[in-house]
Design a protein around this nucleic acid. Sequence first.
RNA 1: GCGCAGGUGGCGGAGUGGUCAAUCGCAUCAGACUGUAAAUCUGACGCCUACGGGCUACGCAGGUUCGAAUCCUGCCCUGCGCA
Length: 305
Amino acid sequence: MNIQEKPKIIAIVGPTASGKTTLSISLAKKYHGEIVSADSRQIYRGMDIGTAKSPIAERENIPHHLLDIKDPNDEYTAADYKHDAIAAIEDVLKNKRLPVLVGGTGLYIDAVLDNLEIPKIKADPELRATIEKDIAENGLVAVFKKLVDLDPDAAYVVDPKNPRRIVRALEVAILTGEPFTAQRKKNEPLFSALKIGIDLPSEILHERIDRRIDLMLQDGIVTEVENLIKRYGKTCAAFDAIGYREIVDYLDGKISLEQATDIIKHNTWHYAKRQMTWFRKDKNIRWIAKPEEAGKMVEEFLINN
RNA sequence: GCGCAGGUGGCGGAGUGGUCAAUCGCAUCAGACUGUAAAUCUGACGCCUACGGGCUACGCAGGUUCGAAUCCUGCCCUGCGCA
């Protein structure tokens, strides 16, 4: 395992509205790169305004991968993403270009860069329904105990109060006959990555978020959502996204447009904080407060190693 | 001016003699996260703490009581109604 032989890749991370897209395009342009998105909602076709997907006109002719690869009613998971992203990165490398992995979905970034081994069990709706029923009838504590019986290590790994986590861990344990915790590991990284994180002062990020949401409204997010639900209904998992659910509530007459706007801003802010919580614990991220600081880091990274 | 309602922690809003530093929601802060991840979930949240507790608190000032956010008196303030 010679680290020096690993292909180099740049990753740009940070909370929503921190300026990742703009930075990534300028870096890609300067260093002969192509962009690989790591955004769980920009995957979907038709979800453009609400996900702040960069308009083609602004992409400066830089190839963008993993945008618009699925319809909102398609199922798509972190495991799918890992597979697709690695394939996309390899394509970029084949073209002798620099992959620039950009996005705010921390799990997706880690899946690729930490080479996570994700348990290879698909969601099984029937089994999940059974477990959920069990939870409803016997309580979370009882079901968590069942999980721990099958997988003792789960006691310290799986959040005992998070039904979704318990369901998944049980699902994996039952379907494979192996403990869930034994099936999730980090493998040897595939790439040598420079991770750059954008960390703006919170007041500035807050302003940027508010401004972005106002722009979404101006740009027609309401129409976008109307068209999407006309075509796909309201229940796609993809629409479980900030901006979309609130507009659906508005269209259902539950709240005013003004209220929806405020709620979107507020939820986006909370989301940004969750993103920061995720990224903060990654000690390999090199944080910058201004986009200009990235250039030097990239140059050093490309020269050294 | 009279009548009625009410003044509780950053906000909203419970509590109407003890188990109340005060349910709960929001905000705030922090955290978790491996096939739903823009999802899902958790903790802290008056002040101090050697984490055993200690101190100050429910508009203000008194009073009743072993004990008051809760009862009484006065005052101040707010809303509504009548003048």
